[in-house]
Design a protein around this nucleic acid. Structure first.
Length: 178
DNA sequence: GCAAAGATCCAG
DNA sequence: TGGATCTTTGCT
């Protein structure tokens, strides 16, 4: 499900404004089969939304400082999710700049924590239904070229090629991949 | 109850 | 390269 999200458009409605961006980077976390997944050791209070129905958000705090947002992609009871890691900003870049306290567009959403800050996503969005009003995934590029690489920031299961990036994008969290 | 690690970001 | 910052988890 992670590669399918690349090239789609993430839309966030905030105070009547529309913020959106093209999803250019995402990572898959394969639930109980994946030592790097928060769900590997079973359900806990923090990760319970990952075990819920698909199409909902799993948001958690990272390193005590940032928030990271995942799309749940498996049926209820399983816990496969896709971490949204980077967007190419499209609509609402002025609002994103304000929320990020930063001018440079390339850096507004180029990382999971940055993306959440730019879109105003926090723990209150844990469990949010992506078919609702606040946060939605829309169609984007017709046939994006997607490249698979290894995931970032892990101490285990580093060999699995479950990070997906839009080929040639300058808006990823690391350098351009072709 | 406590200790350790963590799907990060930014400054120096 | 290291510090900030703090929650979650697992073990004693």
């Amino acid at each position: 499900m992670a590669p399918e999200l690349i090239g789609k458009r993430l839309v966030r409605r905030l105070d009547g404004r529309r913020l959106s961006g093209l999803i250019v980077e995402a990572e898959a976390y394969m639930g109980s089969e994946d030592p790097a997944s928060h769900a590997f050791r079973g359900q806990t209070p923090r990760n319970r939304s990952m075990f819920g129905p698909p199409g909902h958000l799993y948001v958690y705090r990272s390193y005590g400082v940032h928030f990271c947002a995942n799309v749940v992609t498996s049926e209820e009871g399983e816990a496969t999710a896709v971490l949204l890691r980077a967007l190419e900003p499209i609509d609402g870049t002025e609002t994103m700049r304000r929320l990020r306290g930063l001018d440079e567009v390339r850096l507004l959403c180029s990382g999971p924590g940055r993306l959440c800050q730019a879109l105003g996503i926090g723990l209150e969005h844990d469990g949010t239904d992506l078919l609702g009003e606040e946060i939605v995934v829309e169609e984007g590029e017709a046939s994006p070229r997607v490249i698979a690489t290894t995931r970032i920031g892990l101490t285990v299961a580093r060999d699995r090629p479950w990070r997906f990036v839009l080929a040639g994008s300058r808006f990823t969290s690391r350098g351009v991949v072709n």
